[in-house]
Amino acid sequence: MPAISRDEVAHLAGLARIEMSPDELDRMAGQLDVILGAVAQVREVAGDDVPATSHPMPLVNVTRPDVPRPGLSAEQALAGAPAQQEQRFRVPRILEED
């Protein structure tokens, strides 16, 4: 049985906001199935007593003083914008409230 179904890939593509055609979904499901088969062994390697490592170096408490730093001008900020209006980023209509 495949580790990942086409429907599951469609759901993930939705979460990741990537439009995919039926063909692409099929191809992706097949490839991911192979990859997941190869990586699944991580589940068997470490026991419950092994702590997880999220950061490679053991640094803690890195902060900066609460002092303003020069940022970008509105012009710089908007320079790469696909669309702008009234010094704001113009974006297509938003369907749902956050």
Binding site: R64, V67, P68, R69, G71, L72, A74, A77, Q87, R88
Partner: peptide, 17 residues
């Protein structure tokens, strides 16, 4: 980031990368 937080500034003037 070091951008200021004042309320009511002109749009997109308190921003950085």
């Amino acid at each position: 980031c070091g951008c200021p937080t004042e309320f009511g500034a002109e749009p997109n003037t308190q921003v950085c990368p």
